[in-house]
Design a protein around this nucleic acid. Sequence first.
DNA 1: TTAGTTTGTCTATCGTATAAACTAAGTTTA
DNA 2: TAAACTTAGTTTATACGATAGACAAACTAA
Lengths: 384, 384
Amino acid sequence: MRTMTWNQHIVKKNNKALVLQLIMEKDPISRADIAQVSGLHKATVSSLVNELLEEELIFESGPGESSGGRRPVILHFNKAAGYAVGIDIGVNYVLCVLTDLKGNILIEKNQLVNRTPYPTILGIVQNMVQSLIDEMPSSRYGIVGIGVGVPGIVNKEGCVLLAPNLGWTNIQLKMDLENLFQVPVIIENEANAGAFGEQQFGAGQDYQNIIYISAGIGIGVGIILNKELYQGKNGFSGEMGHMIIDINGKPCSCGSRGCWEAYASENALLEMANTDSLESMIALAEDRNQTSHKLLGEIGTYLGYGINNIINTFNPDQVIIGNRLALAKQWIEEPIRTTIQNHTLAHHQKEMRIDFSKLGKYSTALGVSAFVVERFIKEEVKTS
Amino acid sequence: MRTMTWNQHIVKKNNKALVLQLIMEKDPISRADIAQVSGLHKATVSSLVNELLEEELIFESGPGESSGGRRPVILHFNKAAGYAVGIDIGVNYVLCVLTDLKGNILIEKNQLVNRTPYPTILGIVQNMVQSLIDEMPSSRYGIVGIGVGVPGIVNKEGCVLLAPNLGWTNIQLKMDLENLFQVPVIIENEANAGAFGEQQFGAGQDYQNIIYISAGIGIGVGIILNKELYQGKNGFSGEMGHMIIDINGKPCSCGSRGCWEAYASENALLEMANTDSLESMIALAEDRNQTSHKLLGEIGTYLGYGINNIINTFNPDQVIIGNRLALAKQWIEEPIRTTIQNHTLAHHQKEMRIDFSKLGKYSTALGVSAFVVERFIKEEVKTS
DNA sequence: TTAGTTTGTCTATCGTATAAACTAAGTTTA
DNA sequence: TAAACTTAGTTTATACGATAGACAAACTAA
């Protein structure tokens, strides 16, 4: 056992990370501002900033506005120092984005697929990533990594243990992609990635404890506590789609009964409606079709039951509803809120926000891209 | 805004805390061992140890066994440097313990109460604590604090917002006790405290992510993630007793329907059995009374449903069942395990432990006492 | 002009961890 | 039994990073 030990190197590393983080967050910022806001001495800031300049993680632009004395030198985060690839593998699509270090999408590739055996998907991914790399502008660090979001159970070693809707078991996705592209690869569950995406760039930027509900064909949940993703012992946390909300309820494909996702997922909706597309349901509802309206409302209510459980469990700052069912916001928001009001403990409702995804279909891809960038920054600041 | 900044003082503080923690954990330990296991240089260890000796947080005993050279000086944690008071306020009792800094109980006071208006309870607590203080051995730091576990919703400012089974609302318990005894006071939800108690001294000592189920008159849950208590935004986390497990189920006192504690708590059991004591139910079961046996089994099954939800949500290392229903371990363990096996996702079951409380009725009192000690140690190491 | 202010750098100093020499006290070996 | 080796712990010198404060640069205000 070798416990965490503390020395000056750690101090420097952390201060450097702090300075960089401040520059990233408040982009046009001067050395003096950093010193004031961080509490570090201006000499310390100066030396750390100079190192970051040499590493091209930041750059200077001309002098800024004077506030009664010498004009400050304005610093910027060099979001183009490298690029990250974020991939969202869905049941009938693969979405692939190239982002800069701030999560802006530069290039986007989207491909529909009808069958999902692993070799097929791996081939598609390989082609998409290769074409992103070919089109990518040149930069100091190039591709800093590849992130992939998968609708299934992923362990901490980047192996997809089970993705029922893709028909995958024990897929060594991380290993395969690292062999193909020789860059760090991060594999995450799609809901975990979506949670991180919304927390970094979307609806959850101002909050500490966020539960993100990925309500699609199934339901998965991403748990952000104290701004960090909680993964559980093996990385399997958030399988709340298989939370029992009806002990005598209908059987679920997982072998249990009364699971939340058997009532509140897109699949459940389509089954109830006996139709085959969420979009057509929404179109019908917009045409004032009473049945569609009612069914969407029921889905909202069922979602509300599960969210009640989430709120009473986690006492979060915010619950974010994302993925496909967020498209039906107009029809499900009201029943969700009503259900919460009627069931959830009063103290837990105070100051608690329920929001819908802001990133839409990009939540997952941007989330994994952000994981990649985070790892890169941590590694870069450390080794110098 | 003043962000966390890093300097040498922090380094020293953390290293000192690390050294102290190692001494606490591996009690008979030498300076050389600490250096090896921590990775710190032996000179550093030596100087930190000397400071801790001056503060009387540790002490030396004679030389230990030689391992081929000079004999090491054995260091011990001075568990008698001060004492903590842990109080568990239940619906019909107040339990009050005096512990040393390692959580050993020196004195214990137990008092049954039949009604629980706040002034009455406060008076009882005051008397009990005062007599503990009177009987307490003298020590360098004396009483380092008082911790109280309460069956209700406690905010982070130590105010009991709601304790339905005690009939309390908005009780300024922390303030009142600090005024009475002039020492730091920590108020916590009973389940949170129990979780911490079991993690520190009981069934959960070897695990990182633990969910402790306090199954008593109601059900509360304490959440330990990465060895730390998770409290949520306001401190209200873990109200999983009011997780809906049956959407069309029976009404609960909270105003909702189908709450877990309406099915799996002691209250639920007594209602089903139409009797008034868990102990008599258990006695009957031991006399091979079929009805009692069956009812206890049903409670086990219902507990299992909720634990299923917990495991799928948190992917914990361990679930600990504590409080009153743990007394019925013999009758409920089997149905719990069967329910999990039949419902919970297979990957989540692997390496997952389900255990029963080891501290019994002391979980909560020892938990709050441990909170107090933790705060004291952190404070002591910092200021020097 | 001149004085004051703000930004940023440079130099000296301080605090902490570390390396290495050293002392202390044992064990092993010839 | 003495010499060589081992291990424990301390002392002294050094390295490294943050900080304080002096300083220079570049601006504003009067």
